[in-house]
Amino acid sequence: MSVISDNVPDAAPQVPAADHTLRILTFLARQRGPVPARTIADQLAIPRSSVYHLLGVMAAHGFVVHLTGDRRWGLGNAAFELAGGFARQQPLARLGRPLVAALADRTGESAHLAVMSGRDVLYLVEERAPRRPALITDVGVRLPAHLTATGRAMLAALPREQVRALYPDRSTFTQRTGSGPSRPGELRELLRRTRADGYAREDGEVTAGFASVGVAVTDHAGWPAAALAVTWETARGPDAAQIADAIRDSATELGRRIR
């Protein structure tokens, strides 16, 4: 179906509800954070009653979430699952693999590439440096985003409202080693420090005795499409800021390649 603008199709669709649903999801994906239902209705020229009905159905299936206190709607976990599925099928891993290998060579430590999938990160590429131990971050492994350097780097690049939609209360936080944020306020402070530093870090929160630094890879819209990270044994203690500089160069190049 050809489209005259981003919002209004040039002919009446044969399945209006499906058309409205897809347009609403596309609209939400392009926003920097959750928005009111009225804004969706006005921008897409869809009756407000239809917007509320469709949002309710999508919320029941996890594609959107409602921030009751803010009266706003944002993408839900199911929408992020679709993004993760696309990432597994498109050339992100192919484009990132040589950069991950070069990053491991440059730092002398193991490096990996991951994408967001709901409240998890999904690892697409791992390059183990010579004489370094095996890590849990094998290709295809999922880990809680709020505990990992890759996840924190991507969460810090998301709008604060979207992070709040993903982590509304304490029940959404899991632990692995007994450390790491366990409630929304702790995560907000951690992400604030991440934005101030320009990179994310974790130390012993995924695996005791190992630390990581991560940097987000952003797409043409500034959205975190992926993240690169380097992991090392804490006892060796390389300089995290220097490692972050090396990762940032690779993340910038990968961002350029996917645009």
Rank of each mutant, 00 (worst) to 15 (best):
Arg48Gln: 12
Ser49Trp: 10
Ser50Gln: 14
Ser50Ala: 15
Val51Asp: 03
Val51His: 02
Val51Trp: 01
His53Trp: 13
His53Phe: 13
His53Cys: 09
Leu54His: 09
Leu54Ile: 15
Leu54Ser: 06
Leu54Asn: 15
Leu54Gly: 06
Leu55Asn: 05
Leu55Thr: 06
Leu55Lys: 08
Leu55Gly: 07
Gly56Ala: 10
Gly56Val: 08
Gly56His: 07
Gly56Arg: 07
Val57Thr: 08
Val57Ser: 10
Met58Thr: 09
Met58Phe: 08
Ala59Ile: 09
Ala59Phe: 11
Ala59Thr: 14
Ala60Pro: 07
Ala60Asp: 14
Ala60Cys: 05
Ala60Gln: 13
His61Ile: 03
His61Glu: 11
His61Trp: 13
His61Val: 06
His61Phe: 11
His61Cys: 06
Gly62Phe: 01
Gly62Leu: 00
Gly62Asn: 04
Phe63Pro: 00
Phe63Gly: 00
Phe63Ala: 01
Val64His: 03
Val64Pro: 07
Val64Tyr: 00
Val64Gly: 01
Val64Arg: 02
Val65Tyr: 09
Val65Phe: 07
Val65Met: 06
Val65Trp: 06
Val65Arg: 08
His66Ile: 02
His66Arg: 07
His66Val: 00
Leu67Cys: 04
Leu67Gln: 12
Leu67Ala: 14
Thr68Arg: 11
Thr68Ala: 14
Thr68Pro: 01
Thr68Ser: 13
Thr68His: 12
Gly69Glu: 11
Gly69Ile: 05
Gly69Ser: 07
Gly69Arg: 03
Gly69Leu: 05
Gly69Val: 00
Gly69Phe: 01
Gly69Asp: 10
Gly69Met: 00
Asp70Trp: 00
Asp70Lys: 10
Asp70Cys: 08
Arg71Thr: 12
Arg71Ile: 02
Arg71Val: 06
Arg71Gln: 11
Arg72Trp: 02
Arg72Ala: 07
Trp73Gly: 02
Trp73Gln: 10
Trp73Leu: 13
Trp73Lys: 10
Gly74Thr: 04
Gly74Val: 05
Gly74His: 02
Gly74Pro: 01
Leu75Trp: 05
Leu75Val: 05
Gly76Cys: 14
Gly76Thr: 04
Gly76Glu: 04
Gly76Asp: 12
Asn77Thr: 14
Asn77Lys: 12
Asn77Gly: 07
Asn77Ala: 15
Asn77Phe: 11
Ala78Asp: 02
Ala78His: 04
Ala78Ser: 13
Ala79Gly: 04
Ala79Pro: 11
Ala79Asp: 01
Ala79Gln: 14
Phe80His: 15
Phe80Gln: 05
Glu81Lys: 06
Glu81Ile: 10
Glu81Ser: 13
Glu81Pro: 03
Glu81Tyr: 11
Glu81Asn: 06
